[in-house]
């Protein structure tokens, strides 16, 4: 089993949307196996911070280090195509990241997607789509996971599977940064409250 040598850090990061400063002077540093939960009210800049760390957004100031890149990304939308079946989509994403084909079945079992393999992604519920998105992330072979509201559409069993997936990733030396409103119930996580930062 591969062990990641992951690094995620930023120093004095300032992010702007239009001419509004959303995030000012954020610094964080995560080592292999660590997870950070990002909280804060709507509009505090959680998603913007995730996008900047992923390299999708240029920061107004500050430095970002994410090794080995690129990041594994779980956004609001899962990137699923209505005409594709779950299995087709996961086979594609696994191949795009040069992951072995037989890894797909194990991940589908872990996320209870086995019975949905031949269902078109357009016919999935929101929670099922999110589980497919998590499977795609797990098959990406990326060391640093950036997750935006990972648990939002999931039921209790789904949250439990998410939690196990996150634990397994951390046990392999992966890093997770998750923005959330809900309590994810993950053990031993660091916390960063963007609302508190803004008020300070």
């Amino acid at each position: 089993m591969t062990h990641y040598d992951a690094v995620l850090s930023c120093t004095n990061l300032t992010l702007e949307r239009g001419d509004r400063v959303l995030v000012r002077d954020i610094s964080l540093a995560l080592e292999p196996g660590q997870a950070l939960v990002l909280t804060g009210p709507n509009g505090a800049g959680k998603t913007t911070l995730l996008r900047a760390l992923a390299g999708l957004l240029r920061p107004a100031a500050g430095e970002i280090a994410l090794e080995p890149g690129p990041a594994g990304w779980l956004g609001h939308a899962e990137g699923l195509k209505p005409a594709e079946t779950v299995r087709q989509a996961l086979d594609f994403w696994a191949a795009l990241s040069d992951q072995p084909r037989d890894a797909v079945e194990g991940v589908m079992r872990a996320l209870a997607l086995g019975h949905l393999a031949r269902r078109p992604c357009g016919a999935l519920s929101a929670g099922q789509k999110r589980r497919a998105g998590l499977a795609r992330l797990a098959l990406s072979g990326r060391a640093v996971w950036l997750m935006d509201e990972p648990s939002a559409p999931l039921d209790a069993a789904g949250r439990e599977r998410l939690s196990r997936l996150a634990q397994a990733h951390r046990a392999r030396g992966g890093i997770i940064l998750a923005a959330t409103h809900a309590d994810l119930g993950w053990p031993d996580v660091q916390r960063l409250d963007l609302g508190a930062e803004a008020a300070a």
Partner: peptide
């Protein structure tokens, strides 16, 4: 437009 709205664009941008 579909890629931009369904999140595929972000994933392609991070695909390497």
């Amino acid at each position: 437009a579909d890629d931009a709205s369904d999140g595929t664009l972000e994933l392609y941008a991070l695909s390497g």
